[in-house]
Amino acid sequence: MSTTNDRLDGAEAIATYLGKKPRWVYQAREQKWPVPIRKREGMGIYAFKSELDSWLQGDDALPHCPST
């Protein structure tokens, strides 16, 4: 279960956590990569650290995703 401290708000926070550039976060959403990044009306883009960590360790992490 995700907690408030687990949440990353905005592309910059998500990108920093993943070691990517903010554009990568938008590209992941636009290209529909299976990255657990969410967007809700009025909330903007957000993700949970625990879900990102699980994704990075799973088979769904995309080896062909650009690193920048």
Score class of each variant (00 low, 15 high):
K32P: 04
L62V: 14
W55K: 05
P63K: 06
L62S: 12
H64A: 08
K39G: 04
L56N: 14
Q57H: 10
P22C: 00
E51Y: 13
R29F: 02
G42S: 02
E41A: 07
E12F: 05
G44F: 02
P22G: 07
R40W: 06
V25L: 05
W33N: 13
A11G: 12
F48K: 02
G58V: 03
G44H: 07
H64P: 08
G10F: 01
W24T: 05
R29D: 03
A11T: 11
G10Q: 00
L62F: 04
D60R: 12
D53W: 04
G42V: 04
G44N: 05
R29G: 01
I45L: 12
A47R: 05
G42K: 02
F48Q: 01
S67A: 15
T16M: 07
P36K: 07
D9N: 07
V35S: 13
C65T: 14
C65H: 14
K39W: 02
V25S: 00
P36L: 01
R40K: 05
S50C: 15
P34Y: 10
A28C: 11
A47L: 05
E51Q: 14
Y17T: 00
K20F: 11
W55G: 05
A61Y: 12
S54W: 11
Y46V: 03
L62C: 07
F48M: 02
C65W: 14
H64W: 07
I45H: 09
I14N: 01
G19P: 12
P34T: 09
A47D: 03
P34I: 09
E41W: 06
K21L: 06
R40P: 00
D53M: 11
